[in-house]
Structure formats: C-alpha cells, structure tokens
C-alpha cells in the first residue's frame, strides 16, 4: 500500500518537473506518464488507455511562458492512478473504474493549473533572494535559489498526484458501489467517442487543404496496416 503511494508521489513530482521546470524531454506527457504509472502499478492496459485519450484531447496545450494552461499531464497520471487504485484496492470492475476516473480529470487539471500559478508567484520570492545573494557575489546561493524552484515544482506534483489519486480512488469506489456494472462493449463505445474527440482536436491543428493529401495518405496506410494484420 505505502509502496503505491511512494510511486504515485514520485511520478507526480517528476511529471510536474518535466511539465514546467525541466528537463522538458516530454516524459510528462500523458502518452508516456500514464503507461509508465500503469507499468509500475501493474496495470499497463489502463495506463495506455488514459494516455491515449488525454494526449489526443489536450494535444494543443502549451505549458510555456505566462500562459495559464489546463494541466492535462497531472490530470492524466492522477486519473489513471485513481482507476488502478480503485480496481486493485477496492475491487471495482475495470469499465466502471475507467469511466468514473475520467471524471476526475477536469478538477485535477484545473487544480494543477491554479497550483502552477501559485508556484510561479512563490518563485518571485526566489528572485528577490537571488538579488541579495548577487549583491554579495555569492554565485552558489544564486544557484541554490534556482534549485528551490525545482523543489517547489516537484512538491507541487507529488502532492497533487497523491491527492488526486487518493480522493479520485475513494470517489470511484464510493460511486461505483451505487451504480449497476458497466459492460465492456459499452465502455469501448465511450472510449471510441473520446478518441474521436481527440482526433477532432488534432484535425483542427492539421486539417488544412494543404495537408489533406498527407492525411489521406496516412489514412490509407493505417487501414492497410490493420488489413495486413
């Protein structure tokens, strides 16, 4: 049990770091972070499902500069964590756990966005401390101030992911008990609708007349790949 919490907190911290602090090698993206969490917690299938859906729908999110962005990265790992936790610890069936955990995505993403603004405001304190260190020529203290920024981001992610996973998992267990079980084929339809929505978001990015031949080429290649098995 405690091992799960450590994994969730550590991964949450790393995701928050990679999203806004560094090294921004995209390990924080849902298509990476959710499967990794799934792999670590022993449910890769759920991780891949959450990763695919969230990556596509929030593909246009730009976590750069002063922009306030929906924190889909944190939301993805917390929701996937909640689903896996509810399945493993409370015995909730996969379709119900998956559907209800997807409902956790929006509040966690919005909370993540607020917390990012909070961390950026907190970093304002660091720059003033760094000014004082610079006046006395202490380069190490300046670097230390910057290091605190790394720490703030990590703590933000660790706390948010832990909070999201636990409250999300409890929410899923509580609500799933009051609802009739969901059939696997019904879940597949909802998942397909969400992937279709993700496709629409991508089409808005790439759906120009100039790029239409490339989309058509990809479509034929995809169908051919599936047809050939």
């Amino acid at each position: 049990m405690s091992e799960t919490f450590w994994i969730v907190a550590l991964l949450g911290g790393l995701v928050a770091l990679d999203t806004t602090a560094g090294p921004q090698v995209m390990i924080s993206q849902p298509i990476v972070a959710c499967p990794v969490l799934g792999l670590l917690l022993g449910d890769l299938e759920t991780g891949l499902l959450f990763g695919t859906i969230l990556e596509l729908i929030w593909i246009g999110t730009v976590p750069a500069g002063a922009s306030r962005f929906f924190d889909s990265n944190m939301a993805g790992v917390a929701a996937a964590g909640a689903a896996i936790w509810a399945m493993q610890r409370c015995g909730i069936a996969r379709p119900s756990a998956t559907l209800l955990s997807l409902a956790v995505v929006l509040p966690i993403g919005l909370l993540g966005s607020r917390m990012t603004v909070g961390v950026r405001k907190l970093n304002g304190f660091l720059i003033r401390k760094a000014d004082v260190a610079a006046q006395s020529g202490h380069s190490f203290r300046v670097s230390l101030c910057h290091g605190c920024g790394v720490g703030f981001s990590f703590v933000r992610g660790a706390c948010l992911n832990l909070l999201g996973t636990v409250t999300g998992g409890l929410f899923v267990s509580a609500v799933a008990g009051c609802l009739p079980p969901v059939r696997e084929d019904r879940l597949a339809i909802v998942v397909m609708a969400l992937i279709g929505l993700g496709g629409a978001v991508c089409l808005k990015l790439f759906g120009t007349k100039r790029l239409a031949p490339w989309i058509a080429l990809g479509l034929s290649m995809g169908m051919l790949v599936r047809f050939l098995g």
Partner: peptide
C-alpha cells in the same frame, strides 16, 4: 513537421477505424 503530423493523424484514424 506539419506534413508528418498530418500523416500520423491519418495513420491513427486508419488504425482506429478498423480496431
């Protein structure tokens, strides 16, 4: 990058539409 992105989008829709 736009062209490759469009190609990958088509590829994904093609793969998912067969399932």
């Amino acid at each position: 990058t736009e062209r490759l992105g469009a190609l990958a989008l088509g590829l994904l829709i093609g793969i998912k539409s067969f399932g």
